[in-house]
Design a protein around this nucleic acid. Structure first.
Lengths: 197, 197
DNA sequence: ACTGAAAACGACCAGCGTTCGCTTTTATTG
DNA sequence: CAATAAAAGCGAACGCTGGTCGTTTTCAGT
């Protein structure tokens, strides 16, 4: 990495990605909050203040993670939403994908999404914009289902939000009553039955 | 408050309650995380280290709040659960009470429950025990409903957990689509319909 | 080879939660 | 009523934190 040359925004982004990847294991072991900027810098093989050239604050590191992940999640959901199936089937498929997504990096997402709730309101809003994109996609599907007559005339945004929120007890249950997949199925059975006409 | 006399555990508890009450407004204005122990001590009219005689750590102050509130909530729910009504009616009534409870001190509960998620895992577990008592009470009602044939044979613990979790989007929605009461009604309509045979 | 500018850095800062050793207060005792 | 023991109360001090600043290192373009 040459020094005297300015990095393009793209290169900086790539660098952020690299840095985050080098540090992920520390977050997994110690948690984000409990990891100091000194430790993060060391794990990334950087001087402490160099870290600040890539992330303006410590919180920015967490925000970076979520913006990155939510982009991926929404893109994948969009792909499913465009398929040629009943709305409720697509909803199911999206939530299964969502679950897979969460389970894959379960510890990471569990740890970091808990810690994300402690960010300053302004930081939360940035993450929230990403969430909204996802929520609105689900809402679109629910509206479609209502239009098609498959669902009752429920408040589509509220229903979309419920859908997102019921993922938590499925993935993060501290007293699980089955595999996440089983719990998701049961949950969707309840939820989608509740939506039906 | 005499000095040379040891306080009984009961007196200490009362003192903790007093202290918390004196400080509540600071938490409401600044948030818990952003309020330093120095400020807390000042608001309580105590020396900084005297505070530590009543709360072993800063987090303990937050834990105290939740244990206190969850006790009240569960006691109230228990009262409703014992009434002579259909299980789903009692569930509805409990959730309405729960909502009222949250709305009443909305700002406090909103602020503090967000900040509570940042506590150390061990501290969270103590709060969780309180949550379990409440969850199990709801589970009991759902089991009753199943036995009576009003509900399908769903996983009662999972359903109870869902019920608790759907409160969040109702009370804490950043894009609300109605009054909390309206949103709760719609939410319960979906949820309870999903439970029906 | 020189130079300007960006990258990298470690010493430093204010403020944090928490601890410690000391002072103040008072119910009990002789 | 004086002496005492023990708890309540306290502020200074500690080790740490996230974040800043002035300097040094590095290199592309001349």
């Amino acid at each position: 990495m040459p020094k005297g040359t300015p990095l393009t925004e793209e290169e900086q982004e790539k660098r952020r990605h690299e840095i985050f990847h080098k540090v992920v294991n520390v977050f997994l072991k110690k948690g984000f909050q409990e990891t100091s900027m000194r430790e993060i810098a060391e794990a990334a093989g950087l001087g402490k203040s160099t870290l600040y050239d890539y992330f303006k604050t410590k919180d920015e590191i967490l925000i970076y993670f979520f913006e990155d992940q939510l982009n991926d999640l929404t893109a994948e959901a969009q792909r499913i939403a465009l398929q040629n199936m009943d709305a409720d089937q697509r909803l199911r498929q999206i939530m299964e994908m969502h679950l897979e997504f969460l389970v894959e990096n379960k510890n990471l997402f569990l740890k970091l999404s808990i810690e994300a709730q402690r960010l300053k309101l302004e930081s939360q809003k940035r993450i929230q914009n990403g969430r909204y994109a996802y929520q609105d996609l689900l809402r679109g599907l629910i509206e479609e289902g209502i239009r098609e007559g498959a669902f009752r005339k429920v408040d589509p945004l509220l229903a979309a939000r419920l859908l997102v929120h019921i993922m938590a007890p499925v993935v993060f249950a501290s007293r699980p009553t089955g595999t996440p997949q089983e719990m998701l199925k049961e949950t969707l059975d309840i939820f989608l039955k509740g939506l039906q006409v």
